[in-house]
């Protein structure tokens, strides 16, 4: 426990130290706040403009989460299909790899072309960007299930769907949650990307407008808000992961002694 506390203390002081160094270097080197505003200035801007920023925060969060939810649903469905069938795995894998290697920035203009600017392309970008890690992880989890575990249920006369529900899916859960942590961060990137290109709402849009008006401290305020939101979303999914798949890491959280 004391080790844990020490790690926490060190990581907190690293974060604080980073911002302190930033502040101090800006003062010593006399950096113009048009280039790099000091953290204290950014904080003040964030506080003063918060009523204006709040709806944009909500917009970015909701598009991210809606896109993420769609992405997870589609990703799990595709992952189960690809992971349970050897044929589907062999046939679909090259196509999936091809899709996932497309830079997702490239799809934003297409979505804007189809759906106009605004919320829809942001949701769609958040969705497509997070589908592939989920598909690949679910499929890997299912495809690498030990045959012995499946044999246990087969000898009981279990159907294919019973084996999937009782062995395959629980076995794939650690893979699924590992991918969720990656996917939520990617969704977030996707939503902000689309807002930056084509939207009049969201933190991405705020940063775009602020930078064209040379409100540099507002740009940085947006950046820090994005980082905060990203960390919080990541933390939520880490917590869920530890709760649900503790058996895979033999975590002390679930040990009953």
């Amino acid at each position: 426990m004391s080790d844990n506390l020490r790690t926490r203390f060190l990581s907190t002081s690293l974060i604080v130290g980073f911002f302190l160094l930033w502040e101090v270097l800006c003062i010593i080197l006399n950096v113009s706040d048009l280039v790099l505003p000091r953290p204290s200035e950014i904080l003040v801007t964030m506080y003063n403009r918060f009523p204006v920023l709040w709806p944009h925060i909500l917009q970015t969060l909701s598009t991210t989460l809606i896109g993420f939810a769609f992405g997870v649903t589609i990703g799990v469905a595709l992952g189960v299909i690809v992971g349970t069938s050897k044929v589907a795995y062999a046939v679909a894998y090259p196509l999936l790899v091809g899709f996932s290697s497309i830079p997702k920035v490239a799809v934003v203009p297409i979505f804007v072309l189809w759906f106009g600017s605004g919320t829809t392309p942001a949701i769609l970008t958040a969705m497509v960007i997070c589908v592939f890690p989920i598909v690949v992880n679910i499929a890997t989890g299912l495809a690498t299930t030990e045959p012995e575990l499946e044999d246990v249920l087969k000898t009981m006369g279990a159907s294919r769907s019973e084996i999937l529900w009782n062995v395959g899916l629980p076995r794939a859960m650690p893979y699924f949650f590992a991918s969720l942590k990656v996917a939520i961060t990617l969704s977030f990137v996707g939503a902000v990307l689309s807002e930056t290109v084509a939207s009049n709402m969201g933190i991405g849009f705020v940063m775009m407008t602020a930078s064209s008006n040379f409100q540099v401290s507002l740009v940085f305020a947006g950046l820090i808000l994005l980082a905060l939101m990203g960390v919080i979303l990541y933390a939520i999914f880490s917590l869920l992961e530890r709760r649900i798949t503790g058996w895979a890491t033999r975590g002390n959280d679930i040990a009953i002694t």
């Binding site: 030990e146 012995e148 575990l149 044999d151 246990v152 000898t155 009782n166 058996w247 895979a248």
Partner: peptide
């Protein structure tokens, strides 16, 4: 049926 490995489901 019981196999040589206990094959308990770890979760």
């Amino acid at each position: 049926m019981a196999f040589q490995n206990p094959t308990m489901l770890p979760w």
